[in-house]
Design a protein around this nucleic acid. Sequence first.
DNA 1: ATTTAAAAGTGTAAAAGAAACACTTATAGA
DNA 2: TCTATAAGTGTTTCTTTTACACTTTTAAAT
Lengths: 229, 229
Amino acid sequence: MLNDYSKEDKVLLAVDCIIFGFDGEDLKILLIKRDFEPEKGKWSLIGGFLKKEENLDKAAIRILNHLTGLDNIYMEQLYTFSKVDRDPAERTISTAYYALIDIESHNNEFTNVETSKWFSLKNAPDLIFDHNRMVERAVSRLKYRTKTKPIGFELLPEKFTMLQLQNLYESILNEKLDKRNFTSKINALDILIKLKEKDMGSSKKGSYLYTFDAEKYNKKLKEGFVFKI
Amino acid sequence: MLNDYSKEDKVLLAVDCIIFGFDGEDLKILLIKRDFEPEKGKWSLIGGFLKKEENLDKAAIRILNHLTGLDNIYMEQLYTFSKVDRDPAERTISTAYYALIDIESHNNEFTNVETSKWFSLKNAPDLIFDHNRMVERAVSRLKYRTKTKPIGFELLPEKFTMLQLQNLYESILNEKLDKRNFTSKINALDILIKLKEKDMGSSKKGSYLYTFDAEKYNKKLKEGFVFKI
DNA sequence: ATTTAAAAGTGTAAAAGAAACACTTATAGA
DNA sequence: TCTATAAGTGTTTCTTTTACACTTTTAAAT
């Protein structure tokens, strides 16, 4: 006897992406203005539908790439939202993903969307459907992840100053941190490379640039190292 | 212009449940022997398909209740698994949920499944499809949750001893804990009620029984209390 | 009645980690 | 050469976590 799948309901499975960016000041999300009904003209996350021949991770990458031109971006599945009437047009389920991108280095890549815009989390507009709840959940996941995985670097340029890193953590965790304690904590992790090069833009003295040493981090991971901010 | 949903692929959306139980010794999961193809005769999580008129939480509750008779059970959505060929019979996506139940008090309720069985996590059999990976993920989520939310009590009888609680935490976290440190940590949380009653089964002296004080916990939550083991 | 055995119950000291805190240095630009 | 500005740097205090062992209670055996 074969289980009879044919009687079961099939549904549309959407993928929506919360795209986080950081401009050195504020944590931001990328939103688009919908140019189709329902909810035309309102702000929304970018999204699309899963195709039969791809898995959700692939769909998320495709959708992000198609709408923004972005490639090779950190993404993580967040949660699947399934309220019956979440999309008034049709019964859809949506699996939310969040993505972390460095705004600076991808500044010119938003080729396919005229109507996309970065918003500071604090003054982001109201979103369609259940997208506000998706963002909420993404923010709290991001807080947790940045404390336990070195993913903050995904939001920064390749080279960054200690102050930029601290500002990033302060924005994500939504709290002020002590400069000396932060610096020594980060240094104690021993997963950054301090460059000879300085960023002279922010002060007269200039401040040293760092990069994340992914190789060293992975090596330490294997030896039982636990990342913890 | 309305977005044309009709061109998009629809898929079967399954729900699979990792059911955790605790017998005072080991952390266990409830599995069933499949009596239909594919993979007939192999062990599997319980599962079913989402119906059009319900959301995933409801589906998970329905599926758990239908196959086990269990009701009013702690459940949480875990992750959505979507590998293209995860089910060889047909393209299905599966959202996994995990449930926590107290084995003792629900001992006689497994009415609808002749072939269900509790397995210690350590010597659970190999499972069909991607169910092993689901269990892995559920275990790690459970570890995290028990450290940060008072959900361990869901796995214990209404009244329990301090030692039972410690054994539970040791099983979930997979590490030995110090009795004195554990007791004072739990007492410091101040969310248990110590009963006059003793459990005389485990020793000559007998050990005091406790219950979780959900009301007090919720009141403390509102005042900013953070649960942390 | 007394002894025995077995788990329950309890506190303190040492170590580690987190938090608070302020002055010196380097350098561009005036 | 003076000035203004952010960068860079250690120590002390407090809090939290860990390590550790003896006494108490009582049922069961003698």
